[in-house]
Computed example of a mutant assay.
Amino acid sequence: MKIHEYQAKQLFREAQVPVPQGIVAKTPAEAAAAFKQLGGAIAVVKSQIHAGGRGKGTFKEHPQQRGVVLVRSAEEAEQNAARMLGSVLVTKQTGDEGKQVQTLLVEQGLEIARELYMGIVVDREFGGPVLMMSTEGGMEIEEVAAHSPEKILKEPVDIDYGLFAYQARNLAFKLGLEGPQIKNLELFLNRMCKFFLASDSSMVEVNPLVVTKSGDILALDGKVSFDDNALFRHEKLKALRDLSEENPFEVEAGDWGLSFVKLEGNIGCLVNGAGLAMSTMDLIKLHGGLPANFLDVGGGAKVDQVTKAFQIILSDKNVKAVLVNIFGGI
């Protein structure tokens, strides 16, 4: 389950992870009021959708309008908000259809000295969570991994303790931090790793993680995904789910106990078992086809669940055929 940036930052605050001051706005007037309340000379108005690349993204209705903008007055905040709210933002991650912006985050401007990258994911190679950091903040980490993999630093996170102090200091030295910046990073990473473990997160990303001119370390961005299988332990987190940001077919499938992910192909897949489903999709690709979906009905699916699975697959107008691959031993 994904959440919005403003929701992630509220959780960060509760975990004592430093973030900039920010105010949520749902109308242009609220954006103007937020600028005044923050009280600085500059602020940033940020579109809230479940996708990256918002700063470079543009709106279908207003092609010159970016998804993240710097403003210097309440009037600028209100004018930009009027163009952003209710409009469809298209980014590298949304695809051509884009996503409608319904909420904005108005955030204080900072005096930034450096931009870093920080991410925590569950890594099979490490057998648990791994913390990644890089000096290449603000860039897509996939591009850094492809062209400069040596710039990505990794440390395993102990699932019982979190991150040890010596690990944080090692990262700080390798990142070229000095003086109070080292201790500030140590505190930041310690709290962030504990948040990751306590919330059963599957991914936490801060890009960029900024170092201010005064030496403070703050999360300028925040992307968080939670393990769906652990949400039964976190009723508070379940309330943060925004169904309008999710594919309606995936939501419906989840309500029926089905694992469904829509893809761009024209061959529907109905399979029992996630591994078998992935292998089936690989075989389709191997023979020149394109799968229209990932769908795992599980090992104990009932007639009504399989019926619903077919209905969901066939509701996709791109589907020309359905490949059923059922393993009888589950």
Rank of each mutant, 00 (worst) to 15 (best):
L85K: 12
R114Y: 02
M132F: 09
T103G: 06
L105D: 04
E140G: 02
V144P: 05
S134N: 04
S134Y: 05
K151C: 03
I159D: 01
H147E: 07
G86I: 11
D160M: 14
V122E: 00
I120P: 00
A82N: 12
A113V: 10
E143D: 10
I141H: 06
E125P: 10
A82T: 14
E143N: 04
I152Q: 10
K92D: 00
A82R: 09
G109V: 09
E125W: 13
A74K: 11
G127Y: 14
D160Y: 15
T94P: 05
V130F: 04
D160K: 15
V106S: 11
E142W: 09
T135E: 06
M133L: 14
P129L: 04
D96Y: 01
R114S: 10
A81M: 12
E142H: 03
I120H: 00
M84S: 14
G137L: 07
E140T: 07
H147K: 15
Q79I: 10
S73A: 09
L85R: 13
G137W: 00
D96V: 00
G138I: 10
E150A: 15
D158E: 13
V144T: 12
R72I: 13
A74D: 07
E150T: 15
V130S: 06
G109Q: 05
A82E: 03
E143L: 02
D96F: 01
E75A: 11
A146Y: 00
E150N: 11
E150Y: 10
E76S: 11
Y117W: 12
D123A: 01
K92F: 00
V130M: 04
D123W: 06
E143K: 14
A146G: 03
P129V: 15
S87A: 15
L85W: 01
K92Y: 04
V121I: 09
L105Y: 12
I120D: 01
E155V: 15
A113S: 13
E97I: 01
G98H: 00
Q100M: 07
S148C: 09
E115M: 13
I152P: 12
M118V: 09
A146V: 05
S148W: 09
Q102L: 08
G119S: 14
S73G: 10
L116V: 02
R83F: 06
L85T: 11
T94D: 00
Q93H: 09
Q102M: 02
E78M: 03
V106Q: 11
Q93G: 02
Y117I: 04
Q79F: 12
G119Q: 03
L105A: 13
G138D: 00
K99T: 01
L110I: 13
Q79C: 05
P156L: 14
A82I: 03
E125A: 15
A74N: 07
V106F: 09
A74G: 12
I141F: 01
G95T: 01
I159Y: 08
E76P: 13
V122M: 08
V101N: 08
T94I: 00
I152W: 05
Q100W: 00
D160C: 15
G128Q: 10
L89T: 11
R114V: 08
T135F: 02
G95H: 02
R72P: 02
V88P: 01
V101M: 02
R114C: 01
E75I: 12
S134M: 03
G138K: 03
R72M: 10
S134K: 06
S148A: 11
F126D: 15
A81G: 03
R72V: 14
